[in-house]
Design a protein around this nucleic acid. Structure first.
Lengths: 298, 298
DNA sequence: TTTTATTTGAACTGTCGGTATAATCTTATA
DNA sequence: TATAAGATTATACCGACAGTTCAAATAAAA
C-alpha cells in the first residue's frame, strides 16, 4: 500500500478519534491531510471504505501483538489471557475504538455491517478458543456461552467504571475482576450443565478457514510447553530455541525452513534435558507444516 | 400534550423502526404524518428533540407497566423479577429500541448524550434496587456490580442468540439463563467479598429524588398528625380515612388517586371536627404528589 | 362576527457526500 | 533528455439533507 495512503489512514483516524466519524467531513480530512478530493477518491471509494481501511489496519496490528504476547508463555495460563485482554482493552481505549464501532453500526451500509459482525464474531471466537485452551476440552460445550458473557461483563464493567461513573480505578483491576468472575461462572455453569448456544455454531463458521491450522496451532503450543516442562534443569538456550520455533511457525510471514531445522538439530543435542518423544513430535509437526506450506503457498 | 403531536410521535416512531433514525429525513416524516414543515418545527425544535420525545413516551410506558407487574406480587420473588425483565426485553425488541439507542449514542448531541446516559443509569439503578429487595440488604455492597454485569450478560446473550446466530431459542429461555447465572454470581461474589464499584456512587446520584421524597414524607406525617390533634372529638372514621391516605401515599406501589380523592372528599364533610387549613394543606400535598408521579412515574 | 391561535407551504441558507474534469506535477522508460 | 503514463490537484457542480423564516390560509374561541 502507498505510503501516502497509509498516512491518510493514520491522520483520518486521528480526526475520527477527536470528532467522531459522522462529525468529520471529507473536507476536514482533505484539509488535515493536505490531499485533494480527487486523490481521496482515488484511494477510497467512499468515506465508509476509509473507515474499513482504518479498522483493518488496527485489527491486524491488534491480532499480531495479542498473539505476540503468547510467545514463550503457557497458553493454558489464565494470567497470560488476562494480559492479552488488558492489552486489547488498552488499545481499544487509546484508540476509542468502541465509539467508532458504534458509529459503524449505525451507518446502514450493508458492507460495513457485515464487516463489523465478522469482527465481533472473530473476537468471540478467539476468546472461545482461548477458553478451551485454558479450561480444557471437557468444558467446551459451555465455553461459547461463557465467551459471550465474558465480553458482556467486561464491556459493561469497563463502560460503567470509566464512562458513566468516571471511577478512577485502573482498567486492569476491572479486567482482573471480570476474569475472576467468568472463571467462577465457567465452573458453575459446567457443573449445572446449563447450555445456551451450541459451540458448533461458531465452530462451523470458522472451521472452513483453518480447522487443521487451529489443530496445528494447538498441538504446537502443547508440545512446546510440554517440552519446556520436561526440562530437567533451566536451560536458557533450549527455551530460546523452542520459542524461536514456535514464533517462526505461528507468526512469520515466510517461515524459514532451514532455521527451524537447524534449531531442531540443536535441540537434539540437548536430549539429556528434554523429553525425546515430545521432541520427535515437534519435528513431525514442523515437517508436516513445511510440507503443507510448500504444497499450498499462499 | 396535543393529540396531533402525539400522533406525529407515534408515526415518526414507526418510520424510525423501519428505516432507522439517521436514514429517515424530516421530509419523510412530513409526508408520512401529513403535517407541514412549519408545524413540525412548532412541535419539536429539531429531529433530535423528536427522538427524545419518542423515548420519553416509551420509557414512561415501560416503567409504568413494569411496575404494574409488581402489584400484589412478592417483591422479593425472583420469578416476578424475571417476568419484569421479560416484559422489558420484549418491548425493547418489538420496538427495536436497541438500534435507536445505538443511533442516539452517535449523534454527538450533548443533550441527547446526557439523556441516554440518564436512561441507562436509571435502568441500572432499578435493577440494583430490585436486587436489594430480592437478595437482601446484606448483599448490597455487591449488587451495583451485579446489576451492571446482569445487563451485560443479558444484552450480549440476547444479541448473539438473536442477531448474530439467529438462534431460534425463545428470548424467555435466554433471560432465565441470565437470571440463573447472576443469582450464582451474586452468591459467589459476596462470599468472596469482591467489590468493584461502591453502591454509594449510584445511591448518591438518585438520592436527590429520595430527598425531596423525604421532605414530602415529613410534611405528610406532620399534617396528618396535626389534623388528628385538631379533632374536637374522637372521630374513628376520620382517623381511618387519614390513616388510609397516609398509608396509600407512603407505601403503595401505585397509589390510587381516585380513592385518595374520595377519602379527602369525605373528610371535607367533617369540617366541624377538623382544622380546615390543615385539611387544605393535605389536599395540596396529595395533588402535588399525584402530579409528580404522573409526570415522572418511578 | 371578530379576534386569536394554529397551521401551512414555499422559498431560502448552508453543509454534506460524491462526481466530473481539465490542468499540473512525478516518475519511469525509451 | 524527451516523452508518455500515471498520479495529484483545484474547482465547479449535483442532489439530498437539516433547519429557518414568514406571510398567507385556516381553525378555534370570544
Amino acid at each position: 500500500m502507498n505510503d501516502r495512503k497509509q498516512l491518510v489512514i493514520k491522520k483520518a483516524h486521528q480526526l475520527f478519534l477527536d470528532k467522531g466519524f459522522q462529525a468529520t467531513s471529507i473536507q476536514d480530512i482533505l484539509e488535515y491531510t493536505g490531499i485533494a478530493k480527487g486523490t481521496f477518491y482515488n484511494y477510497f471509494s467512499s468515506k465508509n471504505e476509509l473507515l474499513i481501511s482504518i479498522f483493518k489496519t488496527l485489527h491486524k496490528k491488534m491480532e499480531f501483538e495479542r498473539n505476540q504476547l503468547l510467545i514463550g508463555k503457557d497458553p493454558t495460563s489464565i494470567e497470560v489471557f488476562t494480559q492479552q485482554i488488558e492489552f486489547q482493552m488498552n488499545m481499544n481505549r487509546s484508540n476509542n475504538l468502541v465509539t467508532l464501532f458504534e458509529e459503524m453500526l449505525v451507518s446502514h451500509d450493508p458492507e460495513l455491517m457485515q464487516f463489523i459482525k465478522q469482527g465481533q464474531l472473530r473476537m468471540v471466537h478467539w476468546i472461545y478458543q482461548r477458553f478451551i485452551e485454558i479450561f480444557g476440552e471437557d468444558k467446551k460445550p459451555y465455553l461459547l456461552d461463557c465467551a459471550i458473557m465474558f465480553l458482556g461483563i467486561l464491556h459493561h464493567n469497563v463502560k460503567y467504571n470509566t464512562k458513566i461513573f468516571e471511577h478512577p480505578s485502573s482498567i486492569n483491576h476491572v479486567i482482573q475482576y471480570c476474569v475472576d468472575r467468568i472463571t467462577k461462572v465457567i465452573e458453575e455453569v459446567s457443573t449445572a450443565g446449563d447450555q445456551l448456544l451450541d459451540p458448533e455454531l461458531i465452530d462451523n463458521r470458522f472451521n472452513h478457514l483453518k480447522q487443521q491450522d487451529q489443530g496445528f496451532k494447538h498441538n504446537l503450543c502443547q508440545t512446546v510447553s510440554a517440552l519446556k516442562k520436561s526440562m530437567q534443569q533451566d536451560q536458557a538456550h533450549c527455551i530460546e530455541l523452542l520459542d524461536f520455533i514456535q514464533e517462526e511457525l505461528l507468526h512469520a510471514k515466510l517461515p524459514r525452513k532451514f532455521l527451524v531445522n537447524s534449531a531442531l538439530h540443536s535441540l537434539n543435542s540437548c536430549l539429556n534435558f528434554l523429553d525425546p518423544i515430545k521432541l520427535k513430535e515437534l519435528e513431525k509437526l514442523a515437517s508436516a507444516f513445511f510440507k503443507q506450506t510448500e504444497e499450498n503457498p499462499d
